[in-house]
Write a protein that binds this DNA or RNA. Structure first.
Lengths: 192, 192
DNA sequence: AATAAGTCGAACAGTGGTGTTCGAGTTAGC
DNA sequence: GCTAACTCGAACACCACTGTTCGACTTATT
């Protein structure tokens, strides 16, 4: 990951990072954000942006890969494979709801702009973590088995996203988000 | 509602209906659908479209109003004020998940393109029905009171939308949608 | 069968986005 | 302090979309 393909100068490296940061924010705030707007948000000229990312598509892919990697890292940090499944889910929600929401928004965007097929593989990397946790919970007998697994995953992601939207719209305090999610998801997923 | 503002010819009336139908589908399928695409989908010339709806914005508003009216009618048909609240919610889900999802998608789009303020009023008309039902359920003691009301409404809408997406993506059979929603929402909203 | 209402293709101007080129100016690195 | 790497504004061509006008044609209505 840290392999410097072609030796880059420090200021270039800095700008690339700034662009990716700005692009993530811009894309999640407004899926139609223009290259000019992203360059402005990154504090960089439009030409510089194109120098590093030759097209909007390439930029989107780069942001996507970076976000997936970040989401994966944050998930693994929450050790979803350890301890009781309900506890693991709690840890996951507390640490990762924000990252997972960014991942979801970007995924929606990329699905429209890059096509569904190209995305499935990368998407799996993150979703599988959640799915594995849910399966483990089923085996422990604490999560329900009467609904399709895909639906349970959808439920988690969907409410996560809803909470993030509510926080964004000022309808929910950021500190409450994880608690509210817990209180809603556990009964929704729980057996009996 | 049936007041013919300026006497229109029958073929015009027919085209307007076709345009609104096509626009609803187009907008919910792809928020960026162009006027040309909508005209094509309606089987109508682009000029005719502009003759009836002088701008994209006006068209979007018309579709929105029509969908809100339809959603309101479908909701009222499910008599959400009668019988036990859980039963009423079941009826609502069975009859309206599809209409409510269309309403939600259009609302998202309109919020971006027309601004949040202009929409709040119209949005209320539909959301209030759901909220009233949830409040009634709280008074009956069957729905939880430990979370903000706005969040409960968000939860209903969010899962509704998620189910519609899953149906759309082929991950969930349309006939199962209402049942799955019931099985997920009732435990999520229930007291205890 | 006359007339008013409606349809529609072609062609136009205007706007805003993408991606490129050029050339002059900065800045990091040795 | 030299040089190669990098930045960046201005200007360009290109394209897709919006909204308009014109004039010829078709259709509903009486």
């Amino acid at each position: 990951m840290a392999t410097t393909e072609t030796r880059r100068r420090a200021d270039a490296e800095r700008n690339i990072a700034a662009i990716l940061d700005a692009a993530l924010v811009s894309f999640t705030e407004d899926p139609q954000a223009s290259m000019a707007a992203i360059a402005r948000a990154a504090g960089v000229g439009r030409v510089t942006l194109y120098a590093h990312f030759p097209s909007r598509e390439v930029l989107l892919e780069a942001v996507l890969d970076r976000t997936i990697a970040a989401a994966g890292a944050v998930i693994e940090k929450a050790t979803p494979g350890e301890g009781p499944a309900t506890e693991a889910l709690r840890r996951l929600l507390r640490s990762s709801w924000h990252e997972l929401d960014q991942h979801r928004k970007l995924f929606d965007l990329a699905q429209r702009e890059l096509g569904a097929a190209a995305l499935r593989q990368r998407h799996r990397e993150v979703v599988d973590h959640v799915e594995a946790l849910l399966v483990r919970g089923q085996q422990e007998g604490v999560f329900r088995r009467d609904l399709p697994m895909t639906w349970l995953v959808t439920t988690v992601y969907s409410l996560l996203h809803a909470a993030a939207e509510d926080v964004n719209a000022g309808r929910l305090a950021a500190e409450e988000a994880a608690g509210v999610l817990e209180a809603t998801l556990l009964p929704a997923l729980g057996s009996r």
